[in-house]
Design a protein around this nucleic acid. Structure first.
Lengths: 254, 254
DNA sequence: CGTGTAATTGAACTATTTCAAATCGAGTGG
DNA sequence: CCACTCGATTTGAAATAGTTCAATTACACG
């Protein structure tokens, strides 16, 4: 878990742009996407071998802006987490979508999304521009496929998230979140918390994602713990004790 | 407004498959997409001129299943409304996404969406399969663009909807819905309710979409009416009286 | 060991749900 | 044309899940 986040000064409402572009990333560590990684069904690795890729390191709370990604067609999240954040005037916040390592953020076609992409942790993105793409021209259809598949996947995720937000109770939302992160944010091999689920986000961000107040989320955690359905010592990880029960709760069949 | 829906027997929990495939559609009427229509930024029309398109007419509550669309890569909604519906065991229902006339429903890459596509009104879909697509091979990239653009648009819609669902109050959700339908479901030219917004869906479906109970939605309507922000006689249409105020409410800056 | 942020707990409050009942409106049949 | 029916919509009152606010605890870091 990127415990560094707790150390960095992270004011709630004043995100700073903190983009630094450089040419080659250092060795992959932690949850970082490796060159041969198969990201979520399609191969990301091949893209990461493209020559002339630009890499972007962003600090916690840095907003991903046009200046940062410039002419890039899309970006691959190599490390960290990027959330699409919405802030209402009176301070209500929500995170409508999450980009985890291996995910593709698509800049093509000009976005009309309200809200801004914000790094929830120090993040590293690989920027792919038209130039880089042409270097694998004969493979272009595969890239198109990959991008289409990525878009569809994120639509599916967003849609599933809508159905979580619409009608589920706090505890059900949380159960759903745990399952989502078990699949979307797998533990790295040598982790000490083997068999656990990495929650990845801080409580505040989880609650923003689930449309709850942190207090409510906390009580939901407590309920799951009391019911011996999950256990946790480290706030960042939970161990699923009763998967059947958790699944039932997540699916809303209590 | 498709008042026919009220007449058709529409049981809440027992959708029936009612697909009928035929070869050419009859003359375009109502909100049906016409051949020269520009659907949401890209040209749908050109697709509709493809030879050998199959058309699908579906009854209210018909679920769109693999048997219906078969090998089709995607479908264009020509008429009616298709919603992605989720039903929990205890009866809680939600609609996570809406496909309106002109929208493309993408079947490629194999969906893993929970929930099923259900016609909220008698609908007509144009099915596009690989064969039909090859007949405009040299134009293929434009089609790819269109599909990508469509996917991105629907991701944006889903994402925006998430931010509506997460933190907004009933009245704010409703305001947002009204604006969404003003742009996504424009009135046909000769409509008697000129200047009004067609709500298109029944109260129950709107409430499913907004994650509210029908009663709560109804009270939200009442509040907007009392505040002289909207007015309506016909339940299916609202007239925006105070757009600034409605916008403020929709954006959560009360 | 003190500081500052994150996470948790408690108690009062409120928006939404729930349940029950009334009203509305379109289509039906006399 | 009118009474009748059935579903959709609206209204009211009580119950509840979640929020709000205030205060406490936990934890990482210098």
């Amino acid at each position: 878990m990127q415990k560094t986040a707790t150390t960095s000064v992270r004011s709630q409402f004043q995100p700073a742009t903190g983009a630094v572009a450089y040419v080659q990333p250092d060795v992959c560590e932690g949850n970082k996407v490796t060159l041969d990684a198969k990201g979520n069904g399609y191969e990301i690795g091949s893209l990461l071998t493209l020559p002339g890729l630009e890499y972007l390191t962003l600090k916690t709370d840095a907003a991903l802006s046009k200046e940062d990604y410039g002419e890039a067609l899309f970006a691959i999240v190599r490390d960290g987490i990027v959330g699409l954040q919405h802030v209402l005037d009176d301070g209500r916040r929500s995170i409508s979508h999450l980009f985890l390592p291996g995910d593709i953020i698509d800049f093509r076609y000009g976005k009309k999304v309200p809200g801004k992409a914000v790094c929830l942790f120090p993040s590293e993105l690989a920027l792919v521009n038209a130039e880089a793409l042409t270097s694998l021209e004969n493979d272009e259809t595969r890239v198109d496929d990959m991008l289409g598949s990525s878009l569809l996947k994120h639509w599916e995720l967003a849609t599933r998230h809508c159905s979580d937000l619409a009608r589920k109770s706090a505890i059900e939302k949380l159960a759903s979140y745990i399952f989502e992160f078990r699949t979307r944010y797998p533990l790295k091999n040598g982790s000490k918390n083997k068999g656990a689920v990495h929650l990845a986000l801080r409580r505040v961000d989880i609650s923003d994602y689930l449309g709850l107040r942190p207090e409510t989320l906390c009580r939901a955690f407590a309920k799951l713990k009391q019911g011996n359905i999950i256990e946790f010592n480290d706030v960042g990880y939970v161990k699923i004790l009763d998967e059947i029960a958790l699944r039932k709760i997540a699916d809303g069949r209590l």
